[in-house]
Simulated assay, not measured.
Amino acid sequence: MAKFNSQAVQDMPHLTLYGAQLASAAAIAKAQEIQVPEDIAIVDASQQLLHFQRMPKAKYASIDIAINKAFTAAGFGLPTHAYKENVSPGGPLFGINNSNGGRFMTIGGGLPIEIDGRVIGAIGCSTGTPDEDRQVAQAGVDAVLAHVKKENGS
C-alpha cells in the first residue's frame, strides 16, 4: 500500500494480527506464571477487536470487560487504571463510564500499545484483580514493543 503524503489523508499505524498474537502469547505466559486465568482482548487503533483468548477457568462475565478495557485504552490512549481518581462521585469524570454505550472501563487491566507516541492498539485483561490484570496486559504490551525494537535493529 502506498504511503500518503497529504494534508487531507493521514497514515495511521495499526497493530496487526501477528502483533496481537505476540501480545496474547506473552499475556498468557504471564497469567500462567501468576496462576490467574484471564480473558485477553486485543484491539487495533480503531478500537476494533483483533484477537481474543479465554483461558480455561477464566470468568465468562469477564469477556466483555476485557474487550471493553481494550476498547477504552485504545480509544482514549490511557491505561484504564488512570481514571480511578477522576471517576469517583464529585470527580471531574464522574459518569464517564456511561459513555460509549457503557463500554468505557475505569478498572485496571487495559493498556494502550504505543509506538513513537501513537496508539497502534490496546490490550485488555480481566478475571483477576485489577493489579493482576494489569500485569498480564503489560506482558502483552512489552512483547509487541520488544518485537518492534528487534525488527528495527535498536
Rank of each mutant, 00 (worst) to 15 (best):
L17C: 03
G95A: 00
A25Q: 06
N98R: 12
T106N: 05
K84Y: 07
E85P: 01
A20N: 04
P130I: 13
Y83E: 07
V36W: 06
Y60K: 11
Y18W: 10
A8C: 09
P112N: 06
D131V: 14
Y18C: 04
V144Y: 01
S46Y: 01
I28M: 09
H51L: 14
A8Q: 14
D142K: 12
S62N: 10
G90E: 03
A73Q: 01
D64N: 14
G110Y: 04
L111R: 00
K149Y: 00
F104S: 01
S62Y: 03
I113E: 00
T80Q: 04
N100I: 12
I115M: 14
T127M: 05
I115K: 12
Q10I: 14
H81A: 12
L145F: 07
E151S: 08
R134M: 14
L22K: 08
S88T: 14
E33F: 05
D142Q: 13
Q135F: 03
I107C: 04
A66D: 04
D142A: 15
N100L: 15
Q135N: 11
F4P: 00
G153Y: 01
K30P: 02
S88Q: 15
Y18F: 11
L22G: 06
L17T: 13
P130D: 11
D11Q: 13
K149P: 00
T16A: 01
A74F: 03
G121Q: 06
G110H: 08
D142T: 15
G110W: 05
F104N: 03
P13S: 11
A29R: 05
I65T: 11
P112F: 01
H81Y: 14
Q10E: 14
P89M: 04
Q32M: 09
G121S: 08
K57L: 10
A29F: 00
N5T: 10
K30Y: 07
D142L: 07
I63N: 02
D131A: 15
G110Q: 08
S6M: 07
G95P: 01
G124V: 02
P37F: 10
A122F: 05
P13A: 14
H14N: 14
A73D: 01
A74I: 08
K57M: 12
N98M: 13
A2I: 09
F76A: 12
G91P: 07
D44L: 05
A8H: 13
G90K: 11
A25Y: 02
